[in-house]
Amino acid sequence: MQELNNKIAELLTNNLVSIFISYKKGLNGKIKPAFFTKPNEVYENYFGDEAQQNLAVYVHKPEVKKYSKVGILANIFALKALLQLYAENQIKDNYLTIVTVNQDNKVIVFADFNEIESYIAQHQIEKNTNKQKEINELLSLSREKRWEFWVEQLSSCIKCYACRAICPMCYCSKCTVELNQPQWISVPAHSLGNFEWHIMRMMHLACRCINCQECSRVCPMNIPLHLLTTKINSDMEEEFGQIAGMKTTLDFALNTFKVDDYENFIR
């Protein structure tokens, strides 16, 4: 931890970054994001297993964007998100200084995104078998039962858009749901509007979602959105062999045609 704090303080002191995004402990002991602009604030910095939140989401918030150079402490999900954002042309060169702490508690400062690409390739996230079990259980149900399940789950959505606010991939300045000329997606939190919203969001995340499952964690109504993201991610992997957040170049299943696409969904 001390090594990390020293590194952050050093970056701030030497003006290599004007703001550093990291974690600190909140009043009730919960871990929350921290935004350090001065070296003497860094003592608050905290990094540990509880620091789960994907900080990559703050990179495209206007409050952060006004700083000329930004540093960020990234866990593996944040690294994947940042790599995907870079591939989607959302991170300018020489704008971010990305820091991570590896399993041996060693602080790593990445020189460029190619280094992140190879780091991610070496540090694969293991598949959560519990979640896969949940999905398999759901898939074993009949189509009607599954529909009922989602009607029940999604009817509780209050359209607070917390899922969108926490998602590092939801960076559009104007979301489709806010368009009203014409209004493709109905705004009220009724079943139809909720279905339209979540299905649309999942389609927009297909092959872009890095599966950090923050949307599920922040949902105040406890809707299991991670089931949708995990399923769509595994579908993308199985059908197109594509996993988001692995490469510096944009390789997007929905807008590329490859002769060797499996196409086993066409029957």
């Binding site: 959302q90 944009l250 807008n255």
Partner: peptide, 13 residues
């Protein structure tokens, strides 16, 4: 131009 976020996925398609 006001709402384009410049992801350039349109470019590849």
């Amino acid at each position: 131009k006001n709402t384009c976020v410049g992801c350039f996925m349109c470019q590849s398609v």
